[in-house]
Design a protein around this nucleic acid. Structure first.
Length: 997
DNA sequence: CATAAGAAC
């Protein structure tokens, strides 16, 4: 029996060799657990329960060996009843999991299969056992003889080795012996050979003959020895293999018998299984039907040849924001723009003599300096806009006019010659729409292979796909399709597949090598979204073992060198070409109130510049609304003095109908808008001017060249989970284009560990795998998984869906603030904001998902519809994560507990000095919008922290501290959850006073 | 007590 220290070292070594990990506390934990278990089964099961190790593969083997080694301590037995209950629950869980995994079997078939499977294994075990026994007996005889021949002291060798240690030692000795003998024979042979050669060289005939003789003898010796050696070593090898096989089998059987031993199902259980299967099948049918319907709906998209009479569309192929959408899309856009468009000013004002002077006298003017001109190929005047007739002429002509077109052959050659190609081209050069078509024409989609093209935004993926389908003269969803969340418009025939980057990322889960794709094009790479960045790492990896996969990285001018370096110095293909020059103007001096300045500038441009549209970029919704109001207000005052001005506010992903002149106000240093790129947009349609509401100096010195990549800014929980489920364990060394800060990564890992998605070793657990299936944040998915336990998945789904639409549930127009706030307060329920959200959704659902209801209650219809989409998607995924649909029937405690199970990480408690987060002791405040803003309960949980003027908790829920112990006993100790007033004052205070005094 | 974005799965 090994000493405790020796044992620990052994475990550490084993851990290291089996799992590549050497942590002392893990070793100690394993030994400790083994000591407390009554049987190997219990040990295995307990480890499985705690999700400490992923007990498949070599780990289980090692665990069983450990079990054999550990000296048992006295076991504190659980009461028989409790133990039995636990075992039953466990059995149930594992059984239904395994059984349900099989697809089409009936439960009887499953039982039959499992039984015969067990039987086969048992037979095999019997056979192996016998074989091994025979072998051992034979060996024992041999060994005992050998032992007798040797000097004494090896008596124990004649007995069956007691511990594995000894067994291993004898084994090793024997092997060594064998090896030595083999080496000796080899040496003899070699020596004689050498001698012969030497002798031959000397031509000494006599010596030669002698040597020859000796060689013969040696050869014969060896010949006689070899078969014996061979036979012996082979036999030993086989025996060893068999023993190993037996060990494996025993372990497997032990497990399986434990799980399936009494696999005979009761009638009740069988019925339940049947029911579950029925539900699953129904869900499947339902989903299939839904998809069919969706596809049909999207096939109705008919893209008319004519555009809507807008000039100069020729260049505008990429940015379909201003493309020529079909009827359905147009209605969609209009619905979104809604009542937001306003007309004012006199309709026929253009015919009157504009009175600029008057306007400019009233408003303080802003001086701009023309600083630079971004070069274009065309003359500043620009070509005359194509007439409608020209547009009708041919789509192909339009395609030919694109900047990429002249480079078609060169580009295809480059793609043929290089696996990875970086393509640099301004938005509008046609890379997004044309290159996949070129590849298609070139035959990259033969043999059922597909081309993927990723976009960072949903609208982009949709509209580009529509455009390309039209150019190719096929229906959207046939050869060309798009795939975005909630909407898969592809079919079996689809070979050009536009998709959001997140979508492709998800596809890695089902197809880690992207086997069905011949080309992957990552578009808009310069945007550096989190998803594109992760894609880079994964694709680079895939490309290494799939040499025939072509990788294209398309980016606007920024950063192509970086991409090239990342992809092992891949060549960069530059598509020259902004067609129209853009003048860039800067303000002479920095503006203090840039919103005001912006409005003034718009009017200024409106009256002084030739007719054209003005596009204003602002930082947020509120600013946009404010600016609109100001503009409307001023125009109304000016009345017929100026030409008509149509103001169209646009935020989020609303498609725009504006064009040409670009005007860009930017607060120095405060944003993500990349100014250069905006200028790029301007030149796409016609020559334009870009006004920047900051000085040239500020542009050069204060704005960061490019924005910090998203991957370095955001929480990585999701990403880490995804990567882990793709089998990438070593995240610290994952090939990131820009690695995220070490701390962020660590934080994500820690959080996932706390949520039970990863075990001690940083490996994905079963529940982690399930969590990765759900397209929501880890804490949300944990909450959803927990709803099974508290039987309230219906409610939790709603809460999850409502939480994932971003704080935009309540509509709060400036002129009706009081009404809106009243409406909001009407939804309040005791307990907290999560329940309020649940309440809103439930009432909306009861209203038949009506938009009228939303309007009356100051709820944003769009957000609600999105929440419904999310909810439906999540509901569809429930069975995959083995959560049944169930309702709490008004017992909100259960809902709150389930939420706590996911968000125990985000808790705060009231102390003398206000709220503090429980673990980090960070000072936080309830968000003024919260339903608990005035309640100030002692314990609460928050959905997120936002740092504005203070660190605010948004969406808070009142909880009881005891729940934390219930849902996360591994995370909280009873002691830290004692209420503060019962706590003693820390000693330190006295000392501090002394120091102060 | 005092309200700051947006994109995606």
């Amino acid at each position: 029996m090994a000493t405790p220290a020796g044992l620990e070292r052994w475990v550490q070594d084993e851990l290291h060799s089996v799992l590549g990990l050497s942590e002392r506390h893990v070793a100690q934990f394993l030994i400790g657990t083994a000591q407390r278990c009554a049987s190997a089964e219990e040990f295995v099961q307990r480890l499985r329960d705690t999700d400490t190790l992923d007990l498949s593969g070599p780990a289980r083997d090692f665990v069983l060996r450990l079990w054999n080694k550990v000296p048992r301590k006295a076991v504190v037995e659980k009461p028989a009843r409790v133990a039995e209950q636990e075992a039953r629950a466990l059995l149930e869980k594992n059984r239904s999991y395994k059984l349900l995994e099989d697809s089409e079997e009936s439960s009887e078939e499953t039982v039959g299969r499992v039984k015969s499977h067990l039987q086969k294994k048992r037979k095999k075990r019997k056979h192996l056992r016998k074989k091994c026994q025979d072998e051992e007996e034979e060996e024992e005889e041999e060994v005992s003889e050998k032992g007798k021949r040797k000097t004494g002291g090896s008596k124990q060798l004649t007995e069956k080795p007691e511990s594995e240690d000894e067994w291993e030692r004898t084994e090793r000795e024997r092997l060594q012996d064998l090896e030595e003998r083999d080496a000796f024979a080899e040496r003899v042979r070699q020596r004689d050979k050498d001698r012969t050669r030497n002798v031959l060289e000397r031509s000494d005939k006599k010596a030669y003959e002698e040597a020859q003789k000796r060689l013969k003898v040696a050869e014969e010796d060896r010949k006689a020895m070899v078969p014996e050696l061979r036979k012996k070593s082979r036999r030993e090898y086989l025996a060893k293999r068999e023993r190993e096989k037996l060990e494996d089998l025993e372990a497997e059987l032990a497990d399986e018998e434990f799980l399936f031993g009494d696999v005979e199902l009761s009638r009740h259980e069988r019925q339940e299984l049947k029911y579950k299967r029925r539900v699953r099948d129904l869900a499947r049918e339902y989903r299939a039907a839904g998809e069919q319907e969706k596809l049909e709906a999207t096939n109705r998209y008919h893209m008319p040849e004519e555009t809507r009479g807008q000039p100069a569309r020729a260049m505008d192929l990429v940015d379909e924001e201003s493309g020529a959408p079909g009827e359905e899309q147009r209605r969609w856009e209009e619905a979104r723009l809604g009542a937001a468009s306003l007309k004012f000013g006199a309709r026929d004002a253009a015919s009157q003599e504009p009175k600029y002077q008057l306007v400019l006298e009233e408003e303080e003017t802003i001086e701009f300096v023309r600083a630079t001109q971004l070069q274009g190929d065309e003359e500043p005047s620009g070509p005359p806009p194509p007439t409608q007739a020209q547009q009708k002429e041919s789509i192909q002509a339009v395609r030919r006019s694109l900047p990429v077109f002249p480079f078609r052959e060169e580009l295809l050659a480059a793609i043929g010659n290089h696996q990875v190609l970086i393509i640099e081209g301004e938005t509008g050069s046609g890379k997004t729409t044309q290159i996949p078509q070129y590849l298609f024409e070139e035959g990259y989609t033969k043999k059922g292979m597909k081309i993927a093209c990723t976009q960072p935004r949903r609208v982009a993926a949709m509209s580009v796909a529509a455009r390309v389908a039209r150019e190719m003269g096929v229906k959207l969803g046939n050869e060309v399709g798009y795939s975005i969340r909630f909407e898969d418009c592809t079919s079996e025939r689809t070979v050009l597949r536009y998709m959001t980057d997140g979508m492709l990322l998800r596809e890695f889960l089902s197809e880690p090598d992207l086997a069905s794709y011949s080309v992957v094009m990552v578009d808009e790479a310069h945007e550096r979204t989190l998803h594109t960045d992760i894609l880079f790492g994964l694709i680079k990896d895939v490309a290494r073992f799939r040499p025939e996969l072509k990788v294209l990285v398309a980016s606007a001018t920024l950063d192509t060198a970086r991409f090239s370096t990342f992809f092992d110095d891949a060549p960069v293909f530059r598509i020259p070409g902004r067609r129209f020059p853009v003048d860039i103007f800067y303000t002479k001096a920095p503006e203090a109130d840039y919103l005001e300045a912006c409005v003034v500038s718009v009017l200024q441009i409106h009256v002084t510049q030739p007719p054209g549209d003005i596009l204003v970029f602002l930082t947020g919704q509120e600013e946009i609304e404010a600016a609109c109001e100001m503009l409307q207000d001023r125009c109304r005052r000016l009345g017929s003095k100026i030409r008509e001005l149509l103001v169209l506010p646009i935020y989020a992903n609303l498609p725009s109908d504006m064009q040409a002149r670009i005007f860009q106000p930017t607060p120095p240093g405060a944003r993500k808008a990349s100014a250069n790129q905006r200028a790029g947009r301007a030149g796409r349609v016609a020559a334009g001017k870009c006004f920047r509401l900051y000085t040239a100096w500020a542009y050069q010195h204060e704005l960061e060249e490019t924005t910090v990549p998203e991957i370095q800014r955001t929480s990585l929980g999701n990403v880490v989970l995804l990567l882990k489920s793709l089998g990438i364990h070593d995240l610290m060394h994952f090939d990131f284009l820009d690695p995220p800060p070490y701390e962020t990564l660590l934080l994500a890992l820690e959080q996932l560990y706390a949520l039970g998605a990863l075990n001690h070793l940083g490996e994905l657990t079963t529940s982690g795998r399930k969590m990765a299936e759900l397209p929501v944040d880890p804490m949300l998915s944990k909450m959803i998984l927990a709803s099974e336990k508290y039987s309230c998945s219906e409610e939790i789904l709603t809460v999850a869906a409502m939480l994932s639409v971003n704080n935009s549930i309540f509509y709060r127009p400036k002129d009706k603030v009081v009404h809106a706030d009243n409406a909001r307060v009407n939804f309040f329920l005791p307990g907290g904001d999560h329940l309020v959200l649940l309440n809103v959704y439930t009432q909306w659902a009861e209203s038949g998902y009506s938009s009228q209801w939303c309007y009356e209650n100051f709820v944003q219809f769009r957000s609600m519809r999105r929440a419904r989409d999310v909810r439906e998607q999540l509901e569809g995924l429930l069975e995959r994560v083995e959560v049944g649909l169930s309702s709490c029937q008004g017992d909100y405690i259960r809902v709150r507990k389930a939420i706590t199970a996911g968000y125990f990480y985000h808790t705060a408690r009231m102390t003398r000095s206000g709220y503090r987060t429980v673990k980090q002791q960070q000072t936080v405040f309830i968000h003024p919008n919260s339903s608990l803003f005035e309640e100030q309960p002692r314990w609460l949980l928050y959905h997120e922290l936002v740092l504005t003027t203070k660190e605010f908790m948004r969406q808070v829920l009142e909880i009881e501290s005891s729940w934390l112990l219930e849902v996360a006993p591994h995370y909280y100790k009873a002691k830290e959850l004692e209420d503060s007033h019962s706590k003693k004052m820390p000693k330190k205070i006295g000392k501090t006073r002394e120091e102060l005094g």
